[in-house]
Design a protein around this nucleic acid. Structure first.
Lengths: 187, 187
DNA sequence: ATGACAAAACTAATCACATTAGTTAAAATG
DNA sequence: CATTTTAACTAATGTGATTAGTTTTGTCAT
């Protein structure tokens, strides 16, 4: 029987499955079951598991980027950056497994993925234009920003922090320290 | 035939395999082959794959901690922290797959792993005692330090930074910005 | 020494999944 | 309406983890 099944459809179903059961428990068998087709039929739409995970990563990254971009509307400089950090944290809290899917993308050079990645990067760049930094320093600054937020969230995700008092506060504390140093680099 | 085979031995061989072929390509089949036993015999020494990966993570973390601790001998404050960042980066560059094994430990609450983890944490804490921070701020400060270094390395590992000019410089730049802000928190 | 016991190896089998090959049926195209 | 393409299907294979049950080999107390 003929279905209106599409790659996008498959990826969305995979996302659901991953959200519920984690990235490592994503199986083509269960995926096909949910979609009411036989497992090998999936191969008419995806190349293989790798390809599916790439697609899932792009899909998740797109949502993620959207959230971050929305979060800064009407904000600039420190306000914007704190808003981004908050949105970042909120997304990971709501969709930890999708965030994992982004981080563990099999091929980071996949064109789709790269594309969204680039857009996100230049978005951050633009925010940092609010600070009087040299072109070169701005590159460092963006990397620092990403490192801090990603690093914090990632450690949290992997239960890297033992004590669980005031974890909410920590990220803003760290960020404010970093921003302070960043301003010192301006003169 | 009877071997002098031990859990530790198995983990070390697993480490070799992982260093060469990556964490996802670690198979009990190949591992057994290398050790010249049949695959099921491995189960006399490890509970299962999960358990092996936990063991591998602990093993790797121990080496990692050793390197960091050695790196600060005779150093204090900023000097010590830059040395740690350097040692950190050097370790990950030399053993990227072992670092992955640490990060992707199946059970972060595994007692062995937790143990080394704790020791590493209190080591960082001690370094930060060189700064006049409140107890509470020191907690934040340690988290920030870990976030920055881990985040930076992790993004690099996943090819998260597109441009590859001056990546070496970036981490020190970021760290110095952070330390600047940290000093501002001291008063 | 020797017999009992535990540890560590083995063989055989199962199960879960991804993936490939080859086939068929439905939709689209002209 | 005939042809071609697309998307489904069935059947089969291969890899790997894991379990069950058996045998061998050190170890240790008698």
């Amino acid at each position: 029987m003929r279905r209106g099944l599409t790659r996008q459809h498959i990826i969305e179903q995979a996302a659901k499955q991953v959200e519920e059961e984690g990235l490592q428990n994503l199986t083509l068998t269960e995926l096909a079951e949910q979609l009411q087709i036989q497992t090998p039929s999936l191969y008419n739409h995806i190349k293989n598991m790798h390809d599916l995970k790439n697609g899932l990563a792009s899909f998740s990254l797109a949502q993620f980027a959207e959230v971050l971009i929305q979060s800064v509307i009407g904000k600039a400089r420190d306000d914007a950056l704190f808003a981004i950090a908050d949105a970042y944290r909120a997304f990971v809290k709501a969709h930890p497994n999708l965030y994992r899917a982004i981080i563990e993308v099999p091929d980071p050079f996949d064109p789709d993925f790269q594309n969204i990645s680039d857009r996100l990067l230049s978005f951050l760049f633009k925010i940092l234009e609010g600070y009087a930094l040299s072109e070169e320093d701005r590159v460092h600054a963006v990397r620092g920003l990403r490192s801090i937020i990603h690093g914090f969230i990632s450690l949290q995700l992997h239960h890297g922090f033992n004590m669980n008092d005031d974890q909410e506060e920590s990220l803003t504390w760290i960020l404010s320290a970093y921003l302070h140093g960043l301003k010192a680099k301006m003169k």
